[in-house]
Simulated assay, not measured.
Amino acid sequence: MKLPRSLRTAGAPALLALTALVALTACGTSQAGSGGKGSGDSTVAVRIPDPGNSGVLALGKKDGSLDKALAKEGAEVKWTGSAGPFAPAAQAMNADQLDVATGSITSGITSLAQRPGFKFFTAVAPDAAGEGILVRNGSGIGSVADLVGRKVAVNQGGTGEYLLLKALAKAGIPADKVTRVYLRPDQTAAVFNAGKVDAWAVWATYAVAEIGSGKAHFVADGAAIGSDNYSLNAVRTDFAEQHPKVVKALYQYLHEAGAKEKRNPAAYLNVFTDVGPTAVTGKAKAVQVEFTAKGGTVEPIGPEDTKRFKAVAAFYAEQKVTRAEVDVAAHLLDIGKLT
């Protein structure tokens, strides 16, 4: 299970992060920001981005099951802002304006290269079916090799840039043979569909609608690329130290609910509404159901996961995405040791 699915130029990441951080912090409560307390002095508030219309957290919000699970440890959720890119969420955790967020190991590594105030506490295996290099039908691009001399949209330092670089490396193609166009993922669809870029390195959050339209497909998916792009849940370090049992209860909820979602994906779509821009309908709904059924579930981070995180960090350093290899292992929590 993954938490809810969220024109950037190369010079705009700081502005994007600041804008999203303001959106997150503006929605926070003064109680949560000042001491992590909820409506009562003894209740711990867990600040999580609003989950939107689909996914485990959306259903947990609607039916109250998440609060019920956390109440056993004296906690409750304070929904704040909205789910989106991990970079601004990481900044919000660093600023004590958010307690929990989700992101990929790739975006996590670039955030860890700063001064992180968070740690990762769960892992979902890489999405072999739902992420990859998207091309328009009839584009003439039949393989990764056909990307040479073309423009590919990616989100800088995150999943998109990783998928493209990984695909090129596996095909033995120098990275500079393909032009990376840095765009915000939530603004890329229009550029992609207008033909201003030739391909889009992207994940299920945005790929589902494009594939569901019947006008695009993956020229290489996560499995073909050999992606190690795990989805991770992060928690603010101070929060985890102060409330380890709450973090463990949240993990248990996500693990159990994610297994249910995998068995019956359709039940976790269109939780609040089946119409409008947040609804998944038509062929896109079938695509999403298929991707979720093939996906992983929330699990503790084990030794094998840590090795693969290190490999991604080494790859990012080799590709000059980060200045040096980031020590991911220093920022991991062992759920089994939280008491």
Rank of each mutant, 00 (worst) to 15 (best):
P185V: 08
P244W: 03
T188K: 03
N229V: 06
A153E: 07
E161N: 06
D176T: 09
K166L: 08
G226D: 03
T205S: 11
L164W: 07
Q187W: 02
G172T: 09
G158W: 00
K215D: 13
Y230G: 02
K166G: 03
A216D: 04
A194W: 05
Y182M: 08
W203V: 11
R150S: 07
Q156P: 02
A240G: 09
G195Q: 04
Y162A: 03
R236I: 05
Y230M: 05
V191R: 15
A169R: 08
I225H: 00
A175W: 06
R184Y: 11
A223Q: 06
T237L: 06
L164C: 14
T179E: 15
V197C: 10
I225M: 12
D228S: 10
Y182I: 01
I211H: 09
Q156F: 07
A234W: 00
A190E: 13
K170P: 12
T237P: 00
K215Q: 15
T188Q: 11
G158A: 13
V154K: 06
G212T: 14
G226Q: 05
F218Q: 08
G212K: 10
W203E: 15
A201L: 09
S213V: 04
A169G: 12
A153Q: 04
H217N: 06
W200R: 02
G226Y: 02
I225P: 11
A240Y: 05
N155D: 13
P174Q: 05
Y182H: 14
S213R: 03
R150G: 04
L232G: 05
G160D: 08
S231T: 12
A216Y: 00
D228F: 01
A199H: 13
I211V: 14
F239V: 12
L232W: 09
F218A: 10
R184M: 04
G172D: 12
Y206F: 09
A204W: 00
Q242F: 00
V152T: 03
